[in-house]
Simulated scan of single mutants.
Amino acid sequence: MVDSGERLLSPEELAKLSQPPRADLVDALAESPEAAVETLRRIDRAYRNFIDGFGAWIAQTQRFVDERYGADGLAMIGSADDAYRSALLHGLTDEDVSGRHQPDRADAIAGLIEAGDHEAALAAFHALEASYRRIHDVERDRVASVLSQVYRAWGPDVLEASIRFAGEQTLLGWMPHDVARPAEVRVRQWAGMQKGNFADITVGETDDAFVITLHPCGTCGRQVSDGCYGETLDLAVVAEDHPLTFGNGPAPIYRTHVSVMHFIVPMEQTGVPWPVIQCPKGMDAEPCRITLYKDPAATPPEAYAFAAGSG
C-alpha cells in the first residue's frame, strides 16, 4: 500500500510518460541502439495490441449475438457498409492491409537502427505509425458499427449485455492482475496503452493517484471530431438516460463501453471502478481523464459519484 502523499515519479518521469511515441524513440536513439530497438518493439506492440483488441471485441460480440439470436441475428449485424466508408474516410491503403500482420515492417526499422541510420529509421517509423493509425481507426469504427447494429436491432439493454459479455471474455480478465501491481507500474502501462490508442496525453500525479488526461482520446473522442457520428458513417448515438450513458444521454456508441467495462462490472466484482474514467458529456470531443488511484481499493466514492446511476 502507498502512503498518502508519497510521490512515486519525478516531474521528468511524468513528462516522459506524456510525450508521443516518436519522442520516446528519439530519446532511445540518443541512448543506444539496444535501447532504441527495445523502445521500437514496445511501441509496435502497443499499436498491434490495440488493433488486435478491436478484432477480439468484434468476435466476442458476434459470439454473443449467435448464442442469443442465431444466424438470423448474425445477419442483422453483418453489414459491412460502415467499414467500407471508414476505409475511404481514413485513406486505408492496400499496403496497410497487406502489411497489417507482417512483423518484418518493424524488423526493417530495427535493422536501420542497428546500422546507425537514424534518419532513415525515423522516416520508416513515421510511415509505419501512419499506417497503424489508419488501420486502428478503421478497426475502431468497425467495433462501433457492430455495436450500432446491435443497439438498433435490440435496444440498449441488449447492447449493455453484449458489452458485458465481450468485456468478460477479453479486457476484464486482465483486471485482477492490473490492480495487484504497484501504482508506478500501472501508470506506465496505462500511459503506454493510451499512446497505442493514438491519444495525446498528459500524465500528472497527486498525493493519492495518477491522472492521465487525454486530449482527445483515440477512440470516441477522435471519432466525434472526424464526423463519424454524422452523415459520414452514421454511427449510433445512444439517446436514452440509461446505465450505458450514466443516466445522462446522449452518448457516442463507442463510449458506452466505459460504463460497463470500467464501472458496472468492476464495481460488482471489487466495489470500485477500474479505473475511474471521466468522459466528456453528450457528444463532445473534449478531454477525458483516467484516474489511477495508488491504492485501487481506496478509491473514494466521490471520485465516481457521477456513475451512481449506472449500476
Rank of each mutant, 00 (worst) to 15 (best):
G5A: 02
E6C: 09
R7S: 10
S10A: 08
L25N: 10
A28Y: 11
A35W: 09
T39W: 06
R42P: 05
R42C: 03
Y47S: 06
F54P: 00
A56S: 10
W57F: 12
T61W: 07
G73P: 02
A75L: 07
G78S: 12
D82A: 12
S86M: 00
L92C: 01
D94S: 15
E95V: 10
D96A: 06
G99R: 09
G99Q: 08
G99S: 13
R100E: 13
H118Q: 11
L128Y: 10
E129R: 15
I135K: 00
I135S: 06
H136L: 14
R140Y: 09
D141M: 05
R142C: 13
R142S: 14
V143P: 04
L147V: 00
Q149D: 04
R152S: 06
W154V: 07
V158P: 06
E160Q: 15
A166Y: 02
G167F: 02
E168L: 15
L171T: 15
H177M: 11
D178M: 09
A183K: 04
A183D: 02
V187Q: 03
W190N: 07
A191K: 10
Q194V: 05
G196R: 12
A199R: 04
A199K: 05
L214G: 01
P216Y: 02
C220T: 05
V224Y: 00
T232L: 15
A236N: 02
H257E: 12
V258L: 01
V258F: 01
M267I: 12
G271V: 09
P275M: 01
P275V: 00
P280H: 02
A285T: 06
R289C: 10
A298I: 08
P300Y: 04
G311S: 08
